[in-house]
Computed example of a mutant assay.
Amino acid sequence: MTFVILKHLILLIFYPLYSSSLKCYECTGYVPCGSGQTHLLVNCGGKCMVYQNQYDGNVIIRRCCWSNCGGDGVSFYEGRLTYFCSGDMCNGDIADINLIEQGSGEEPETTTPSSVSTLSSTITTGKTTSMNTASSSLTCYECTGHYSKCGISQDAVLRNCRMCMVYRNIYDGNTVVRRCCTWGCGPSGSVQQYEGRQAYFCSSNLCNGIGAESILTSRIGIPFVPDW
């Protein structure tokens, strides 16, 4: 009886971490996105986020953040200015003004020093965040298939990644997305469920380039087990 009660208490403590009813947009500026399109929403266990991807023509990206999210408001996340919020659909187009207001000024006070490189700079040494703790110097592509040179150009890369990853955004015409994974990554060479999507992980520099997405196609029909 004691064991059963303890088991139920553990479930009550940990289950909400992955059962949040928060709804966030998951799409890019290449599709009508952020103006009430409920079919572009995902269940989010963290916070909603919106940013401009400087590696992809400054396109607006709306996503669910699952870990190491900033506090509500604007902060720097993985080397870019990002707006975080905790209300349903709060990362819609009404949130974009927050990036515009901060984009022309200095980094906000909530900024945490990061060792993640940006398009016009090299890696900053001696400054790490919890996100980058124990990370390697792995370099990965960080862009979408909307950018014609994604998976080819050295201008579309991030450093200090734990793993490189590639997946298709089912909310954006199955567009291929190449990203630097910094948290919750699957084992190298595996296809895992990652934040609700099927993703391929690899651990050599720029291994998520052109052709890596073929791994996803070859694994269609194989059941996947969430990694949380």
Score class of each variant (00 low, 15 high):
residue 77 Y to I: 10
residue 128 T to V: 15
residue 86 S to M: 03
residue 130 S to E: 06
residue 205 N to Q: 10
residue 56 D to M: 08
residue 30 Y to E: 06
residue 103 G to L: 05
residue 50 V to N: 06
residue 194 Y to R: 12
residue 210 I to Y: 00
residue 4 V to R: 08
residue 96 D to Q: 11
residue 97 I to M: 10
residue 23 K to G: 09
residue 206 L to G: 06
residue 177 V to A: 10
residue 162 R to H: 13
residue 184 G to D: 05
residue 22 L to C: 07
residue 163 M to F: 10
residue 65 C to K: 03
residue 59 V to T: 11
residue 25 Y to T: 02
residue 15 Y to S: 15
residue 29 G to T: 10
residue 42 V to L: 14
residue 88 D to C: 00
residue 178 R to G: 01
residue 123 I to W: 05
residue 216 L to R: 00
residue 109 E to I: 13
residue 183 W to K: 14
residue 175 T to R: 09
residue 160 N to H: 09
residue 72 D to Y: 08
residue 198 Q to S: 14
residue 77 Y to C: 05
residue 30 Y to D: 07
residue 116 V to M: 07
residue 209 G to R: 01
residue 211 G to P: 02
residue 58 N to G: 11
residue 34 G to N: 01
residue 188 S to I: 12
residue 36 G to W: 04
residue 40 L to M: 13
residue 77 Y to H: 11
residue 150 C to T: 03
residue 220 I to T: 12
residue 101 E to L: 15
residue 20 S to E: 04
residue 104 S to F: 14
residue 75 S to M: 06
residue 6 L to A: 15
residue 167 Y to G: 02
residue 16 P to F: 08
residue 74 V to I: 13
residue 105 G to K: 07
residue 125 T to F: 08
residue 54 Q to P: 06
residue 50 V to W: 07
residue 154 Q to R: 12
residue 91 N to Q: 01
residue 182 T to D: 04
residue 201 F to M: 09
residue 209 G to L: 00
residue 121 S to F: 03
residue 14 F to R: 03
residue 63 R to D: 06
residue 23 K to E: 07
residue 137 S to N: 09
residue 41 L to I: 12
residue 96 D to R: 12
residue 148 S to Q: 05
residue 34 G to Q: 01
residue 215 I to F: 10
residue 42 V to E: 10
residue 104 S to H: 09
residue 94 I to P: 01
residue 62 R to Q: 03
residue 175 T to K: 10
residue 147 Y to C: 11
residue 171 Y to E: 02
residue 81 L to Q: 07
residue 136 S to Q: 09
residue 173 G to V: 12
residue 72 D to S: 15
residue 76 F to I: 15
residue 218 S to L: 06
residue 112 T to E: 07
residue 175 T to V: 15
residue 159 R to D: 09
residue 178 R to S: 01
residue 157 V to F: 08
residue 65 C to Q: 04
residue 214 S to V: 04
residue 135 S to G: 10
residue 75 S to P: 02
residue 49 M to R: 12
residue 113 P to G: 03
residue 111 T to L: 05
residue 191 V to I: 11
residue 90 C to K: 01
residue 24 C to R: 07
residue 210 I to H: 00
residue 43 N to F: 13
residue 203 S to A: 13
residue 167 Y to D: 00
residue 2 T to F: 07
residue 83 Y to N: 08
residue 90 C to N: 02
